Structures are given as C-alpha cells and as structure tokens.
Computed example of a mutant assay.
Amino acid sequence: MAIHTVDVNGVEQRYHLYGQGDAVVVAMPGGPGVFWDYLRMPGVEQHARVAYVEALGTGESGRLPTHPDGYTRELYARALDRVIDDLGVARVFLLGHSYGGFVAQYYAATRPARLAGVILYDSAPVTGAEQGAEAGRQVELFVKRNEGNPEVPAVLEALQSVGSITDDDKLTAALRGLLPSYLADYWGREAEFAPLRERLRVAYISGRDADGNPEIIDDRELLPRITVPALVIAGRYDIICGERWAREIHELIPGSRLVILEHSGHLGNVEEPERFGDAVLRFIAANPK
C-alpha cells in the first residue's frame, strides 16, 4: 500500500494505492463525504492496482475555502484528472459507488478518452424527489422484512435524522445507526458487519455549489452519451440506489452490462465480495486497455 498526494488548484488530494497487475482501477467513494476505506476490494486488488480516492473534503485530503459547499461533480472530476495524471497510465477503469457513481457517470460522459471502462456501482440516474420516493418505498420493504426486530425503530430514527445534520461526528453516528438498512441481512451477519459499522466515518458535505445552490442531478440525457464500456452493479436490497435505478442506467447506456447482487444491499463489496470482485475482474478482462 502507498499513499499519494496530488494538488487540485491548491487543495491536497490523497489517494491510496493497493494491489498488483497491469490494469488500474480508480475507486471513487460515496456520500458525498464517506471516508474511502469502506470501499476496499481485496479480491480485485489481487489482480489489478486499485487507487482509492480520499475525496476532497474528507479525511486527510484538503478542504475547500467554501467548505462544506463547492464539492460539485466537476470539481471531483478535475481531482480525478489529477489522480489519473499521477498514476501515469493512459487509461483507467473508473469505479464509482453511490454518489461516486454520479461522479463516475459524469466523468465517463465528459472525459471518455481517459477511461478503459466505467463501473457504476449502486448509482442512479437522478436525485431529488423521484429518488426519494423510491427510497421511501424500499425503506417500507426493509421494515416488513425485519418486522418485530426491536432495533428497527432506532435505524429509522437515524435514517430520518441524516438530512438535518451538519456536524461531522453526529453525521458519523447517524451513518453507523442506519447501516443495518443499507445491508441485505445485517442482523443475520452482525458479528461480521459490526466492525465495519464501528469504523465508518463521514464528513458533512452540503451538496451545494460554491454559491450555495443545490446540485440536482438528472442524467437521463447524459447517460446515453457514454461511449466507453460500462458495467452497472447494484444490490437487490439496496434502499437508495438499487435495482430499479441500475436497470434504468443499463437501458440508457448503449452496450452496458448489468449485474444484480442477489444477497446485497448498498455494500455488495462487503456483502458478496467474491461475486462483486468476479464481476469487476471479468469486465476488466473483457476490455483490455
């Protein structure tokens, strides 16, 4: 493992390089603001080098003068430009998870020459009211699946609190509190997932540009313009960026591949690591640089 830093218009961007092999995967985490390490993919690292981006505004990477505002997809795309420059390879596979998927699909549409392929992992074509309504439906299904579990009310309380929290520590506590809703079977595998829950961290990022305007995403016109090879991955039980959105992205991107992880929620890389890693590695092998 090696830690690298690059400069993005005077702000320090860190990334963590793991693995071995000729192919390079650049991994953009979600949130925005969730610390990078939950996204580790050891199975992929056995056959490819993986550069995990410690996104601007989180961890030891720098913060903008306008923090917590200003972290737009274009800013993150410019940061990815610098990471790829520093890696010194002609083209990479870009993997984006959750909000990182929003960044990755934007990057693939605007900078295709830099990519050997894009992996949209638990992403969606839109944010806002439409995505919120679908998330509400999925939360109801989560409650039904866990009927009678005395811990469910606390999870729902954490979910409901997230939108009003601006403090990093309180937001981290809320993320840990809601984690069972993000997994297909948290309580059935609690001993396995509890350590992940304890180490999750997040920094508050507002989702607004430097002028304080919210960045609303609707990529239904952008996605058909993606010309690089694309793999779409989602968990069957993902409550926020699940199967409905994965199938829509798959239909919108010409020639894309779709993988639904049958026993995963929002974190298939830890819930079904072998199937997740196999899907990523097969995609890489099918699209040599």
Rank of each mutant, 00 (worst) to 15 (best):
E243S: 10
G277I: 11
W187K: 11
A210T: 06
D211G: 02
V232A: 05
I3E: 15
D209S: 09
F276R: 06
L115D: 03
G277C: 08
D218P: 02
V89H: 08
K289N: 11
I240G: 03
P65T: 06
D7Y: 10
R197C: 00
E251N: 14
P150R: 08
E248N: 07
E190K: 15
D278H: 12
F193Q: 07
C241I: 00
Y15T: 11
L171F: 12
R14D: 01
L267V: 12
V26Q: 05
V280K: 03
F93Y: 15
A90D: 14
A124G: 07
F283D: 04
E140A: 15
Y52Q: 13
E248L: 11
T227Y: 01
A246S: 13
P150I: 11
R282P: 02
D168G: 00
V26C: 09
V83D: 12
L159N: 06
A184H: 07
R275C: 05
G10I: 14
Q20R: 15
D278I: 00
R201Q: 15
G212K: 10
I217L: 14
L267C: 12
L267Y: 09
V11A: 09
V6C: 12
R49G: 07
D22H: 13
H97M: 03
L171R: 13
I205V: 14
P153G: 09
V34H: 01
R40Y: 08
R225D: 12
I205R: 04
A285F: 01
G277W: 07
P288A: 12
A77I: 03
D185G: 06
W187T: 09
V53H: 10
I249P: 01
Q160R: 15
L178R: 15
H266C: 01
L222C: 03
A116Q: 03
R236M: 08
R49A: 10
E54P: 00
D211K: 07
G268M: 06
G188A: 05
A286S: 14
E157M: 07
E130T: 14
R282M: 02
R225I: 01
W36L: 15
L281A: 10
S98N: 06
D209P: 04
I205W: 03
E243I: 03
G57Y: 08
T66F: 07
Y71G: 02
H47L: 10
T5C: 03
A51G: 04
R114T: 04
H4K: 13
E271N: 08
T5R: 14
V8Q: 14
Y18E: 15
E274L: 14
L222E: 00
W187E: 05
N287M: 02
I253Y: 10
P29A: 04
H47C: 03
R73I: 10
E262L: 08
T66N: 05
V24W: 09
A246N: 13
L183A: 01
A203P: 00
S181Q: 05
